[in-house]
């Protein structure tokens, strides 16, 4: 009996070790990125936030570009994605839902390099034509493509959150004579909105971290756009800066690119942590109430 118990303990220990592996990976990633980035932080100093990458090795322009692209992407992805989520979970019949769900999964599974390829070959010439741009490779194209790529996450999060609203609440509303749409608008959606919001921070992270599509449709020039609103220009984005300038980088530039990686890692991790904490609280609320 005693021997068996100790065997059980060993097995549990092994599983704990395996499970802790994710924590090790996180620390490894942070440690090795930071190790390579330290020279950049020391030698470039405060200039790291300047918008001039070519001369001063500043990342300010890339951060601005990332924010513009992410903002544009979310402007597209949120309304459409939440609408799609409401349709899937509340409006669509069981059959339509069973057809649409895998299709949305396929949309999520299409590799980003294919999105980038299609974006560069089809979307970019179209934008050049529509807006009489010198070149359609622009932050606008990046925002559009990333918006489409973020859609599946927003859809599935909205769908899950809406589905997790207790059925009794909806039925009470319907029993009082409200139409299904009134129930969705006044009861289901408000109840699910905190969950949607919590999950939506994940969408922000995904949009910020997308690399290949941005690299292919925005192109990785170093000159930052002059204004915050000029989405019709090309410009550096944190991810495409790393990917596009790696080949020609040497010396301190390499360290600066690692610093860009550190920025990305920190921003996205903070987003994930916020989302996780919020989801935890919501779970608690629904269980408690």
């Amino acid at each position: 009996m005693k021997k068996k118990l100790s065997k059980e303990h060993i097995i549990q220990g092994i599983f704990l070790l395996i499970a802790s592996f994710s924590i090790f990976i996180i620390f490894f990633i942070f440690f090795f990125l930071f190790k390579e980035a330290i020279p950049a932080f020391i030698e470039v100093g405060g200039d790291i936030f300047s918008t001039d990458f070519s001369n001063e090795l500043g990342l300010g322009g890339a951060i601005r570009g990332s924010l513009i692209v992410t903002g544009g992407a979310l402007l597209i992805a949120y309304p459409l994605g939440i609408g799609g989520g409401i349709f899937l979970s509340e409006v669509a019949s069981v059959w339509i839902r069973r057809i649409l769900k895998p299709i949305i999964e396929v949309l999520a599974g299409i590799p980003s390099v294919v999105y980038g390829f299609i974006g560069a070959i089809i979307l970019v010439p179209f934008l050049t034509d529509s807006f009489r741009m010198i070149s359609g490779f622009s932050l606008l194209a990046g925002g559009l493509i990333i918006g489409v790529m973020t859609l599946p996450i927003i859809i599935s999060i909205s769908d899950d959150s809406l589905k997790s609203v207790p059925r009794e609440i909806k039925e009470a509303s319907l029993a009082l004579g409200a139409t299904p749409w009134q129930t969705i608008k006044k009861v289901t959606f408000p109840a699910a909105s905190s969950g949607i919001f919590a999950g939506a921070t994940l969408g922000v992270g995904k949009a910020l971290g997308e690399t290949m599509a941005v690299l292919m449709v925005v192109s990785a020039i170093t000159r930052a756009p002059d204004s915050w609103f000029d989405i019709f220009e090309s410009g550096p984005v944190l991810t495409s800066l790393i990917a596009g300038h790696w080949g020609e980088a040497y010396g301190l530039k390499v360290n600066v690119l690692f610093a860009a990686g550190v920025f990305l890692f920190i921003i996205v991790s903070v987003m994930s942590i916020i989302s996780e904490i919020m989801q935890y609280r919501i779970e608690k609320k629904f269980k408690g109430g």
């Binding site: 994710s22 990633i29 990125l33 390579e36 971290g209 990917a243 890692f265 987003m271 994930s272 935890y280």
Partner: peptide
Amino acid sequence: RVIKMAVSILRGVPSIVFGLFALAF
């Protein structure tokens, strides 16, 4: 809680950061 947090952070880590990590490690 800690492991779940780590998994969700890892889920969000941008793919290019994995590329840098591969390069450094």
